[in-house]
Design a protein around this nucleic acid. Structure first.
Length: 837
DNA sequence: AGCACGCCGACT
DNA sequence: GTCGGCGTGCTC
């Protein structure tokens, strides 16, 4: 029997399966999806089994055996291996990178070279050298040492150690290990039925009171108990218990325990809530599809507060009733304890939670609940789409429009597209939910090809539960404010509203979009802006440390008080960071209690939840923050929402900026007045006439979508054409330009080979047949033209039609890598990019 | 990605 | 004459 194995080397040359023999002793354990240790050239590597073949005939000269299997249960299923192949083709990454992305970080391979002392004494002449003897003695005293430890101890003797190895005086064994250990805890095991404990009690000397306490307790509770728990309940020391174990009356040994981040938290069980008529209609559609095991994608457009979550919960229940599993994906930022509580409250221990705030160990343990079939529902961020379930009935993606569903590192997959593919493989139902669906998704509910029905089916919920009206949104024209002499960042109307809420002791949410609007330092005399010496961006001012920091490479320098360029003292930080808003608030409203939430205040583990809890408990009047305050939060006493500057998103040069502005405004507007009290929203802007601002204030998604789709169609942007962003980087600009241009030329050549028609050179366009059309923009300097001293150029491939484009670009990249590898030219490909930078 | 094999300069 | 520079090519 032999296996095809993908080895853990993400390189073009090794991006294929290698054949290995499955030794008879391992046939029971090796499955498709197994992680194995295999010899690869001179080293030992981790690999993934992607195929198994019963025959022994292999067309390879010499075949090596699989050395070991790393898990009792394969961490990947056959279906996930298939999905991995799809991801690597679709997003142009190495197959092993795709497979690796499906596993928790804890399972990332760790390689260890263990050094021991060899059998033979070796050549006497060598052994007599004193430093050699020292090395050998050192290794001998430890039994075996890792190569790293040895090199650290004898740093200057690298060559000698090599000699000792080749002479056989030292031996080397390579090991593939997990990065993670399972957690163990000492556990006390009384004999079955407390047998013999009575006698032990009599045997103990009279003054051994503590030991007697332990025995009495165990007689009453004759079952295994964690040592720490026992010590706490009857207040004894560890030594007391150990001495009992030493005498053989009880057993004390290490047992693997699960790290449960939600341990000790009781979740009040909830029952399904009655659905409104509208909810019922939507739920019925989803339930029927799940019940029929029909592979179908629903786009659920439901306004904020329309009760999407309850529909999700009841759909999942249907899925569980059929013995199937469900995956719920939520943007990282809205995966709050409240959210978890709703799912744990309904489904209890059948739920595993995967999010990035968990430690590697905790995440690993949650993940293992899936492979052990202890759970049926997974709720998590992006990567939870790869949960190793085998009977998926339903995949839900909440806030489907969120750009965080696109992974920014390789594999640069979009969770929504992976979900649709995975549902196809498992014949499952997908529900994409949003108050502001992405234009990609809404377009797929309209598209009709060959008079077939559209790929996605639209479901709509227009009403908020309990018929609460959408809050009125007031657009405030900041140009008028300026004209009237108000130079503060708060308009008069917002000022009055804040004053009013403070008086009524109601709460306020203020939103400031930070992206592209960070505080930077500028000289008011000469216009000098402090920027990073390695990257093409201005440095950001951090008040807490009084430092200027680069967001890309981490470079930091002290705050300057004098302009480095013209020596002027008129230098200060600009831009409205949350810190400045906070300062101004306190100035205008003395005594106001503000909670600020931004990257600076939420990096610490758990701080995010801490602030929100404080706000919920009304320990503050204002919650001030960046985007993270806009998502899914639900506070009953918030009656005022203010957007300080709506234009910051709008002015980013990106074809999706109108869409993002609309989404953001709609979301914050949904934060106000979700409960009995009526809410009010103020949006401050310098471009009040913009359609994204207008439609958002009218709560009219459909009108916005139609307007924006028209624009996209005219400009040939997604969803009507798709994009692939190719970025090149190198220290030398001339080389970069030459290479990028060569790439584009070759790309067009390769495209021509696919083509059936002549390339229209004049229009810079490749037309193949009526269904396929490709266009290359650039190369041009990237918007961020330098990162870490490497200059960046990019080109955008725009295409319409089937997925030949990824193939064409893939082939061009392969050609390019071959001829530019030695020049250290980096190339990165992003299929369906979310940001063109 | 590593690591070995292989072919040309500055040393014992 | 050798030690070692890193260019090229392979890993089942």
């Amino acid at each position: 029997m032999y296996a095809k194995v993908i080895v853990d080397v993400p390189a073009k040359q090794t991006n294929r399966a290698f054949d290995y023999e499955v030794p008879a002793s391992l046939t029971k354990w090796v499955e498709v999806g197994s992680r194995v240790g295999v010899p690869f050239g001179p080293r030992v590597l981790q690999g993934f089994v992607v195929e198994l073949h019963a025959d022994t005939q292999v067309d390879v000269k010499r075949i090596k055996p699989i050395l070991n299997v790393l898990d009792l249960v394969p961490p990947l299923t056959e279906e996930l291996v298939m999905l991995g192949r799809w991801v690597s083709r679709m997003y142009l990454c190495h197959e092993v990178t795709a497979l690796q992305a499906m596993l928790p970080a804890a399972l990332k391979a760790k390689y260890e070279r263990m050094i021991g002392v060899g059998e033979e004494s070796g050549e006497q002449a060598l052994l007599e050298m004193s430093d050699l003897q020292e090395i050998v003695r050192f290794v001998k005293s430890k039994g075996s040492v890792s190569m790293d430890a040895l090199m650290e101890r004898f740093a200057s003797e690298g060559a000698l150690i090599k000699q000792l190895l080749s002479a056989g005086i030292l031996t080397e064994e390579q090991k593939v290990k997990d990065r993670m250990n399972t957690k163990k805890a000492l556990t006390v095991f009384p004999p079955a039925g407390g047998l013999g404990l009575e006698e032990a009690l009599l045997e103990l000397p009279a003054r051994a009171n503590k030991q007697k306490d332990v025995l009495r307790y165990l007689l009453e509770h004759p079952h295994a108990i964690r040592l720490t728990a026992l010590m706490e309940t009857i207040e004894v020391g560890a030594s007391t218990v150990k001495s009992l174990a030493d005498r053989g009356w009880i057993e004390l040994r290490e047992v693997e325990v699960m790290r449960d981040p939600y341990a000790g938290r009781a979740f009040a069980r909830t029952k399904p809530l009655p659905l409104t008529e509208e909810q019922t209609g939507v739920f019925t559609e989803i339930r029927d599809a799940v019940a029929a095991e029909r592979n179908e994608v629903f786009l659920l457009h439901g306004v904020t507060g329309s009760g999407k979550t309850e529909v999700y919960l009841q759909s999942i229940q249907q899925c569980l009733d059929m013995g199937k599993e469900a995956i719920v994906l939520v943007p990282e930022i809205s995966l709050t304890p409240q959210m978890v509580e709703r799912f744990k409250g309904r489904f209890g221990d059948l739920v595993a939670v995967l999010h990035s705030r968990l430690s590697n160990g905790e995440r690993y343990d949650e993940w293992r609940k899936i492979t052990r079939k202890q759970v049926k529902v997974v709720i998590g961020a992006r990567s939870a789409i790869f949960a190793p379930f085998t009977q998926i009935g339903l995949i839900i993606i909440d806030e489907e429009h969120e750009s965080s569903y696109k992974q920014e590192e390789s594999p640069k997959y979009h969770t929504r597209d992976v979900a649709v593919q995975r549902a196809k493989q498992q014949n499952a139902v997908v529900v994409l939910g949003s108050a502001t669906p992405s234009l990609e998704s809404i377009e797929l509910t309209k598209r009709r090809r060959d008079r077939e029905k559209p790929p996605f089916r639209l479901l709509t919920m227009r009403e908020r539960v309990a018929n609460r009206p959408m809050p009125p949104v007031a657009i405030v024209d900041m140009r008028e404010e300026l004209k009237n002499g108000n130079r503060s960042m708060f308009s008069r109307s917002l000022y009055k509203a804040i004053e009013d809420r403070l008086q009524k002791k109601e709460q306020i949410v203020l939103l400031l979009n930070r992206r592209g609007y960070a505080t930077f330092v500028m000289c008011r005399t000469c216009g000098f802006v402090s920027s990073c010496p390695h990257c093409d961006i201005s440095l950001t001012y951090h008040q807490s440390s009084r430092m200027l920091r680069c967001h890309y490479c981490g470079y930091a320098e002290r705050e300057v008080t004098q302009c480095p360029s013209c020596q002027s003292e008129h230098i200060r930080h600009f831009g409205t960071g949350t810190q400045r808003v906070e300062e101004e608030l306190s100035k205008i409203f003395p005594g106001i209690r503000v909670i600020r939430m931004d990257v600076d205040t939420t990096t610490e583990k758990g701080s995010h939840e801490k602030w929100l809890t404080m706000f919920r408990e009304k320990q503050a009047d204002v919650l001030l923050g960046t985007q993270m305050v806009a998502k899914g939060l639900d506070f009953p006493d918030v009656t005022l929402v203010g957007v300080i500057a709506a234009d910051t998103v709008l002015n980013i040069p990106d074809f999706r900026s109108a869409e993002r502005t609309f989404q953001l405004l709609t979301q914050v507007a949904g934060r106000a007045g979700r409960h009995e009290k009526q809410g009010e929203v103020f949006v401050q802007t310098y471009t009040p006439e913009h359609y994204s601002v207008q439609y958002a204030s009218q709560h009219d998604y459909i009108a916005f979508a139609n307007h924006e789709l028209d624009i996209r169609a005219n400009l040939g942007y997604p969803p009507y054409q798709r994009l692939i962003l190719v970025t090149f980087s190198h220290e030398s600009v001339p080389l970069l330009v030459r290479s990028a241009e060569a790439f584009v030329t070759r790309l067009k050549e390769i495209a021509m080979e696919y083509s059936t028609k002549q390339m229209d050179l004049f229009a810079n366009v490749v037309s193949m047949d009526s269904s396929f059309h490709m266009d290359v923009l650039g190369p041009v300097a990237s918007p961020i033209s330098r990162i870490k001293d490497r200059y960046r150029f990019q080109c955008v491939v725009k295409y319409r039609g089937e997925d030949q484009a990824a193939d064409i670009v893939g082939r061009t990249v392969a050609w390019f890598e071959e001829r530019s590898a030695k020049e250290k030219l980096q190339i990165s490909v992003d299929v369906d990019p979310q940001y063109l930078m």
